[in-house]
Simulated assay, not measured.
Amino acid sequence: MARRRVPRAAALALLLATATACANDVPEASWSRGLLPEHVTEQGGVVQSLWNGAWIAALATGAVVIVLILWASMFHRKRRAKAELPPQVRYNLPIEILYTVIPLVMVSVFFFFTARDSETLTKVSGDAPVKVKVEAFQWSWRFTTTVNGKTIEPVAGVPVSDYNQGPQLVLPTKTKVEFDLSTDDVIHSFWVPEFLFKRDVIPGIPEDNPGRKFEITTLDRTGTFAGRCAELCGVDHSRMLFSVKLVPQAEFDQYIATHQAGSAQ
C-alpha cells in the first residue's frame, strides 16, 4: 500500500505544478482576506466584502449541519431490532415548512448581496478622466490611453516569459479609469489579480455594447502589478503577460507629457 502512495503523490504534485505553470507571478494572499490578494481598487473592496460574507455564511451553515449530525448521532442513538425503523418525520408540517423556508431565506439573502454588488462592479458612468482601450491578440496586448480626451502613444507587446518584459499600462492613483476591451481573433480574458476582477475579451462585440467595458477607481497605493490572460487562447497563452503600474498623479502627468513629446517627434 505504501508503495502505491508514492507514485500517486508524485503524480499529484506534478499535476499541481503543471496547473499553476501559467501563473508564475502569484500575488501574496492572506488568510484574513480569504486567500485573496490585497486589492488596489475601490471595486476590489466590494468583491472582498462579498467574498468574506460568503465564506462566513458557508462556514456557519457547515457548523450548524455538523452540530446537528453529532447531536443526532450522540443523543438519539438507540439499539433497535434490525427490522425496526427509527421514528419518521414525514408529513410533519412544521418541520417541512422549516426545511423549505430556511433554504429559501438563505438563497434570497445570497442573491440580494450578489445582485447588488454585481451591479456596482459592472456600472460604467462614462465620465472617467482616464480611458484605456485594451486590444487583446495572440499573444499579447495593446493599450491605448486617453486622458481628458487626449490620446497618447499606444503601448503594445509580444509574448514574453516575465510580466516585467511585457507591455506596461501606467495609471494614476486615486482616479477613475474606464476600460474598453476588444479582440479580433479568439476569446481572451483581461486579469489583474489585485483588481479582484477579470473580464472576458470576446471577438465580434460591438463598440456600443456595455459588456465590453468596466470601470475601476484606483486607491492611493503605488506599485507594479502583474497581469495576464485568464482564458486558454492558444499555444503562447502562458506568455500573454503585461503589467499595470500605479503612480502618483504628478508622475502620471510627467509620463503623459513625455509620451506626447515622443509622438510629436
Rank of each mutant, 00 (worst) to 15 (best):
Q88L: 06
W141L: 13
H76T: 07
F113P: 01
G44I: 08
A21Y: 04
F75V: 06
A136D: 12
P86Q: 00
V132K: 05
K82S: 03
A17F: 02
N52M: 14
K133E: 15
L35I: 14
L68D: 10
W31Y: 13
K150D: 15
V46D: 08
T61E: 00
I95V: 14
S140N: 10
L93G: 00
P103V: 04
L70S: 07
K123S: 12
K82L: 03
L98K: 05
G45Y: 11
E135T: 15
A72K: 10
V47M: 13
V130A: 11
A58N: 06
A60H: 01
T41Q: 01
I102F: 10
S108V: 09
V147S: 13
S140E: 01
G34N: 05
T145L: 14
K123N: 12
A23N: 12
Q48M: 13
A115F: 13
I56N: 04
L59V: 03
V124C: 07
V46G: 00
K131C: 04
N92Q: 01
Q43T: 09
G53F: 02
A81W: 05
I102T: 06
V105F: 06
R77Y: 07
K133F: 07
V40E: 10
K82R: 06
L35N: 15
V147G: 08
R33V: 02
A136C: 10
